[in-house]
Amino acid sequence: MDAVRKVVAGEPILSPSVTRKLIAHMVPEEESRRRTDARQVLARLSEREREVALAAGQGKPNAVIADELHMSVGTIKGYISRILTKAGLDNRVQLALIVHDAGLDGR
């Protein structure tokens, strides 16, 4: 009954130390699931598409990616478009988040 009164009054029913432990326990599971999901998205790509996706996900501009992978800028643009479509993404920011979540952003 005391817990119900606390909730009604807007007070926490868990102590701060218990809340911290609960959050610490849940965060690794969430990170692990996000990493697995992101890696599954990248696994749908061809090897060359993954190379382009990782470079784009690291924030590199098309010209730099083209130079590093010995392709034309137009080819890189085509790859980026196909990668976004295959991965079900709308933009490069989402791609960068996938690369980050996969743990492949070089950080």
Rank of each mutant, 00 (worst) to 15 (best):
A63F: 11
R33F: 05
R39Q: 12
P16G: 07
A66K: 00
L89N: 08
L69S: 04
G103K: 12
L95K: 02
I13A: 06
E29C: 05
V7D: 07
I83M: 03
R107W: 08
D2E: 12
R35S: 09
D37G: 06
A87F: 11
G106M: 01
I13W: 10
A38D: 04
R92P: 04
H25L: 12
S15N: 07
L54S: 02
A56H: 01
A87G: 15
V64K: 10
I23A: 09
S46E: 07
E47C: 06
V41E: 10
N62F: 06
R39I: 08
D105W: 02
E68P: 00
I13F: 05
A87V: 15
L84V: 04
S72K: 12
G10Q: 10
L104E: 07
M1W: 07
P61G: 08
A43C: 04
D2Q: 08
V93W: 09
K77I: 14
A96Q: 08
L84Y: 08
P16E: 13
L97Q: 10
A9E: 08
L42F: 01
L22P: 04
E30G: 06
T85R: 08
G103M: 14
G59P: 01
R92Q: 14
D90S: 15
A43L: 05
A9L: 08
T36Q: 11
V99W: 00
V64C: 05
L22A: 14
T36M: 09
A66S: 00
A9T: 04
A43T: 02
V8A: 06
R44S: 13
A56N: 08
L54W: 00
A9K: 10
G103D: 10
V64S: 03
S32K: 11
L97I: 14
A87Y: 09
E31K: 15
